[in-house]
Design a binder for these strands. Structure first.
Length: 299
DNA sequence: ATGACGACCTATGGTCGA
């Protein structure tokens, strides 16, 4: 199962690019961020025609997240992070797909810093850390994928010098990301490429794409059951090079749902995948989300 | 310190993103 995250920077403006990528790479699960459209502007019919079920949490102009699943309907388990009922931003949506709990997140940018936007970023991060712990404790296979708006280390950027004051590189932002990892999450891209610089974002300015002046800010975090299933990870860089591209490229991980590295294997995955309290209220839909994708990935 | 680019909106420039 190939699971990807892609900050699309405007779902309507980027629909042709999205469909071309879905066609060429055929990801099984997709987390989208920055829809920049209300739910009424979500091109559900086009996405369905491409063979994907979808759930979305939109908002006018800003933010907006969605989860797509090939030949399946994601079973929504949550929208919005717990911890602040006054938070109006559409930045989190979560679903069960093929027995994996998938959290799709768009962490606040936080610029300019210092200031209220940076405070909001750190507060949102704290809520994420608290909720991520709950997810870990649930024992389910979980992936937290999205645009974290954090460059984890100086190795994750072409040159930190001109970004030193940016919210993405602040020690406070990095400390939050480190604390999240310390809970027991595996950073899929960094684990796959321990010694290589890997980027997922190149801004539109100063020919940064042409010069490969990128940042790694889109991350796929895997809890232990999912980390044991990881077979590959990467970035679909070609997407960034297309005309009229988003400033991000899709990042992905390939999971072997049928042969985890240890002896727990698929029975353990299936057993733990569906019993969550979050999924309980969706019990009528369980059978659809438990159905594996008809088409084998062969991975 | 600013702006480079691009997307969005009861727009025609302001605001936001990263």
């Amino acid at each position: 199962m190939k699971l990807a995250t892609f900050n699309i920077n405007g779902i309507r403006s980027r629909l042709p690019a999205l469909l071309a990528w879905l066609e060429r790479e055929a990801p099984d699960v997709v987390c989208l961020q920055e829809l920049k459209a209300p739910d009424s502007g979500f091109p559900e019919a086009d996405i369905n025609r491409a063979g994907y079920g979808a759930i979305r949490h939109g908002q006018v102009s800003w933010n907006g997240v969605a989860i797509l699943a090939k030949d399946a309907q994601p079973v929504e388990t949550r929208r919005g992070l717990p911890g602040d009922p006054d938070d109006t931003h559409s930045r989190y949506i979560e679903a069960a797909v093929n027995g994996v709990l998938v959290g799709c997140l768009y962490l606040p940018n936080g610029n300019p810093q210092p200031g209220p936007k940076f405070d909001y970023k750190l507060a949102w991060f704290e809520r994420l850390i608290a909720y991520a712990k709950q997810l870990l404790d649930s024992g389910h296979p979980v992936v937290l994928a999205g645009d974290y708006n954090v460059v984890p280390t100086d190795f994750d950027i072409y040159n930190p010098r001109s970004w030193l004051k940016d919210a993405l590189l602040q020690p406070e932002s990095r400390a939050c990301y480190a604390r999240l990892l310390e809970q027991g999450w595996t950073d899929a891209l960094r684990t796959r490429f321990p010694d290589e610089q890997v980027y997922t974002f190149w801004d539109y300015f100063r020919q940064h794409w042409e010069r490969n002046s990128g940042l790694r800010i889109d991350h796929l975090l895997l809890n232990k059951p999912v980390a044991a299933m990881m077979r590959d990870a990467g970035v679909d860089r070609w997407v960034r090079g297309e005309p009229h591209a988003s400033d991000h490229a899709p990042a992905w991980v390939v999971l072997d749902l049928e042969g985890a590295a240890d002896s727990t294997k698929k029975t353990a995955v299936k057993k733990t995948a569906l019993g969550s309290t979050a999924a309980a209220k969706k019990s009528t839909a369980r059978s659809t989300q438990a159905t594996p994708s008809k088409k084998k990935t062969g991975k």
